[in-house]
Amino acid sequence: MDTSRPLVVILPARPTRDEVAGLCAELAAAPPGDVVCEVGALAPADLAAVDALARLRLAAGRRGHRIRFHGAGPDLRALLLLTGIGETLGL
């Protein structure tokens, strides 16, 4: 695997628990490095979205990845700030 480029994962608009588990497994299988998680399609901004992002952040951290979330809209950013984990997720 080319570690000079970040691993890119794309979160679907309404990720199921199985889809999030699959993305977490992908992170667990990859060597530690930079990860970009595209969240622009994620809608609506609800607690299921917060749960998905938190799970991905935990999975990345366990494997030693540096994850960054890209494309979060204003509604999702506001919800993450309201829940208190926006800063933890780097948003």
Rank of each mutant, 00 (worst) to 15 (best):
T3I: 15
I10G: 13
D46K: 06
A41P: 08
R77P: 11
A25F: 07
L7T: 02
G22K: 04
M1N: 12
R17F: 08
C37S: 06
D46M: 06
L42M: 04
R62P: 00
L27H: 04
I67D: 04
E26F: 05
A60N: 12
L91R: 10
G84M: 05
G71H: 05
G86N: 02
I10E: 14
L81H: 14
P31V: 14
V50D: 07
L27A: 04
E87C: 01
A21I: 12
R63Y: 00
P6H: 06
A29I: 01
E38D: 09
L23F: 10
P74E: 07
L42C: 07
L81C: 13
P74I: 02
A52P: 06
V20Y: 07
A43K: 13
V39I: 05
A49H: 06
T88V: 15
L76S: 01
G71R: 01
V35F: 03
A41K: 12
G71Y: 06
T3S: 15
A45M: 01
F69I: 15
P31M: 13
R5S: 14
E38W: 01
D75I: 10
R17Y: 08
T88W: 15
I67M: 06
E19A: 05
G33N: 05
G22S: 06
T88F: 15
L58P: 01
V36W: 07
L11K: 02
H70V: 15
V20P: 11
L82Q: 10
L23A: 13
D51K: 11
D51Y: 09
L89D: 07
E38A: 11
A30M: 05
R66V: 09
C37G: 06
R68V: 05
H70P: 09
L82A: 09
G61W: 00
L81P: 09
G73D: 14
G84P: 04
I67Y: 04
H70W: 11
E19W: 00
H70F: 12
R57L: 12
V36M: 07
T3F: 13
V35A: 00
A30S: 10
R63D: 00
R5A: 15
R63H: 02
V20E: 10
L80T: 01
P44H: 08
A41R: 15
V50I: 12
P12D: 11
L82E: 09
A13Q: 15
G90P: 02
P12G: 12
P31F: 13
R62A: 15
C24Y: 01
G71W: 06
V9T: 11
R77F: 03
L27D: 02
A72Y: 00
L27K: 09
C37E: 06
R5Q: 14
S4F: 13
L91E: 12
H70S: 15
G61P: 08
L53H: 05
R63W: 00
M1K: 12
D34A: 11
A25M: 11
A28D: 12
L56M: 08
G84C: 04
A41W: 08
E26C: 08
A60P: 10
A48T: 09
L81I: 13
V8P: 07
R68M: 03
A54G: 09
A45I: 02
L76P: 01
